[in-house]
Every structure is written in structure tokens, then in C-alpha cells.
Amino acid sequence: MKALLIRPQSRSIEPIEIGRFEDIVKLIGYETIAIDEVDASGDRLFFDEECFLRGSEGRFQIDSLIPVSGNGVVMGAEEDGSGLRDVTLSQEALAARTKFL
């Protein structure tokens, strides 16, 4: 499935492929995953729920969502929570909505 990886340390957003939820955990680096809605199309931001307690490097913010420290993954999720799907946002659209702090 298509996803977008946000790396605040390098201030980059790159397209990636995700096969399963465990791939997200590996990219973020922790199992304490939190999910926040990015838009009504079903795209979600996956990030480390304890990112500020850990002191992860780099921060970013999408629109008015709470700032996140460390890596984040944006991809689609089914409304009923039954699974993941391709991200609908383009890399350019997400970049326009993301601030690196």
C-alpha cells in the first residue's frame, strides 16, 4: 500500500510502500502508535504516542494537529478500523500542509 513517510530530522516527506501494520511500527521505531485523522478521505497520521516523553529528534505539524516529534507515517485507514489502504494525499499536498518545527 502507498504511504508517505515524514522525517522531521531531514525535513523530508517521501513516498513508501507499506505491507502491514508492523511496517509502520518499524518506521516509527516504537510500538506505542497513536493515530490522528488528517482529512475526511480517511488518511491518518501514525506516530509514536510517547514521542515527547522520549525526546525524539525533530518535530513536525500537519495543519492544526498537535506537533509530533520523530517520524510519522500518513496512509489511508478504513473507517471501521478494519484495515489499511493507500494514502489519497499526494506528496506535494501533504508538504504544503506540513510545517517542520
Rank of each mutant, 00 (worst) to 15 (best):
E14P: 00
L4C: 14
A95F: 06
G19L: 01
T32Y: 11
R85C: 13
L65D: 02
Q91R: 13
G70R: 02
T88V: 12
E78P: 01
L4Y: 12
A95W: 02
T98W: 03
T32Q: 12
M75L: 15
F47I: 03
D80V: 09
V25W: 02
G55H: 03
L65Q: 03
S10D: 14
I66A: 00
K2G: 15
G70L: 07
M75T: 11
L53P: 01
A40E: 13
G72I: 10
E49N: 09
G19F: 02
S12Q: 06
E92F: 01
E31S: 09
F47V: 08
R44Y: 06
E17K: 14
V73G: 00
P8H: 11
R11A: 15
E92I: 13
R11G: 02
D36W: 00
S69K: 14
I33G: 07
V25T: 11
R54Q: 13
L45H: 08
A77C: 10
G83W: 07
E17I: 09
V38R: 00
Y30C: 09
F60I: 10
E78C: 12
S41A: 09
L4A: 13
L65A: 01
E17P: 02
F60G: 10
E22A: 15
S41P: 02
C51M: 06
E22D: 04
R11K: 15
D36A: 13
R20C: 07
R20T: 09
F21D: 12
E37S: 14
I62H: 00
S56F: 11
S90V: 10
S90F: 02
G76Y: 08
T88M: 07
R7L: 09
S12R: 08
T88E: 12
P15C: 12
Q9E: 15
S64P: 00
